[in-house]
Structures are given as C-alpha cells and as structure tokens.
Design a binder for these strands. Structure first.
Lengths: 131, 131
DNA sequence: TTGGGTGCAAATCTTTTGCAGGTGT
DNA sequence: ACACCTGCAAAAGATTTGCACCCAA
C-alpha cells in the first residue's frame, strides 16, 4: 500500500478548496494553482484531487453538468446546479439519512452512499432572465 | 423552432429503450441498433438520444460512473449504481417530492427537478465478493 | 421543394497515464 | 537510497459537430 508523502502542491490544492464556498472544477483549481506554481501540470491537479477524494479529505461531485466538481466540505449535504450558468450551490437541507434506511428496505445489495441533487435556475440567473 | 420529422432510427431507439429494464449507455444502444440498421452511426444515436430526452420521451441519467445512461421510464424514480460492476438499477422508493418542497424553503432560485442516487455493491457482486 | 435526418469522420473536451527526472523521509 | 510525486505530452473515452447527401412532409 502506498505511503503518503508530503507535497506542497497537494497541500495548496486542499487549502484552496477549503477556502472556496463554490465547487471548482479541476480546471479552475489548475488555473488558480498556476499563480503559486507556474509550472504545475493539469495531471498533477487531477492526481491530487483524486487522491484527496480517496482519502476523504475532499469530496468529488462527479460530473455535475458534464464536469467533475470538487468540494472542500466533506459532511453529507446536497447540491443545486443552475441549468443556465452551471454554478453548483450548497443546499442547506436537513439530514436526509432516512433516505438511506428507506432505500435499504427492499434492496438486497449493500448501499454505502447516496446523493441528492437539485436542478433549476439560480437566483442570479432569474434576475437576468428578462433580457 | 424545429419541426420534428419522422425517423425510423429514432423510433427504434425509443422502442429499444422502452423494452429494457436496465439503463443502457449510448454505446449499448448503438450496438443494438446496428443489428437493425447496420450502417447507423454513433452520431445519430447520440443525436436521437439527446433529442428524445429533450422532448421528454426518455430520461437521461447524466454521467453515472462517468458515462451517460438512458432510461425509458420517465416517471421520477431513483437509481442505484454498483461501484463494482457499474450496473444501474431502479430503486422503488416511495414518492420523494417532499424533498423538493423542503429544499425550496430556504432557496431563492427556482428548482425544477431533483435526482436521488444511491451507490454501493449490488446483490450479484456481493455474492462474488469472496473470490 | 425544403428543412430536418443520416452516415462518416474529424474535432472537442475531460480525465487518465507512461515516462524520465525530482523530492520527501 | 527508495518510493512517492511532478511536469510534460500523449492517450483514452465520451460526446459533439461539420458536411454532403438522403428522405419525409
């Protein structure tokens, strides 16, 4: 099993994600990392995002609008994606773990995770809609 | 606005989806369509799947495990994806529309849709796990 | 006749990976 | 030193698109 070794790139990526309340894509992370490490490669960003998600330090929101987004908040919570601007927003819903229990009742597999996503038009885009 | 014109390919694709209880990917649809139309192109399959989803005759399950799946069942229902074999299975959960209402309470955007997804190991893969 | 539909192939876009050299421990 | 990590570039996959021709209305 691979032993984790310190890497300043990985630390920066994690720190960057923690300070964002939106949910950047790998590409956005990459663009921001370039300010600190001009030679950082997109591959490194992808590798670290994936690694951080694997060890549970960040959360991967798989393919929201066709692209993966990454979330520094690791507690279960749901998301909303605007169909117009593709922004991804946190939803402050109450605990939804009862979904898990309900789902497990008639199900013979083993459920380990779930995700709830909402779609529509965000507040900002609603305002601009009459243009 | 485009006027819809009959196309036997599109009809076959729709019919194929209706008869499947799993949730084929575009590629699987393509392979099956080739039996009927040996010269059909993958582009045509994608165009029609996309069109059918737009007019609401089928449902697109965006990027389940990295790939889009398509569902002939259009009523709201949730899905389970096996992390091992990537199979997508229908979940017979009760009506979850209360999620929509709850979510809308503290939200200023306009929510039009939602999706609930479960992940884990399916029954079949559980059986084969001790190999 | 006309505009949508098709097949084909090339292009796009996102994400992954092989490799040679760099770096943390 | 050893194993992990990085940058670079190429590869891999999925999906989209331009184009010339075909076909339904």
């Amino acid at each position: 099993m691979a032993t984790l070794k310190y890497s300043r790139q990985r630390e920066s990526i994690k720190e960057f994600l923690m300070t964002r309340k939106d949910h950047p894509t790998a590409d956005v992370v990459y663009e921001n990392m370039k300010r600190i490490y001009p030679n950082i490669s997109l591959g490194t960003v992808y590798r670290n995002l994936s690694l951080l998600a694997d060890i549970g330090e960040i959360r991967k929101l798989p393919s929201f609008g066709g692209v993966d987004h990454f979330d520094g908040r690791i507690e279960q919570h749901s998301h909303f994606m605007c169909n117009k601007c593709c922004k991804v927003i946190d939803m402050e819903s109450e605990n939804l773990d009862h979904l898990l229990e309900d789902a497990g009742k008639d199900f013979n597999g083993e459920i380990s995770d779930y995700s709830v996503r909402f779609f529509g038009i965000c507040e900002d885009c609603l305002k601009t809609e009459n243009n």
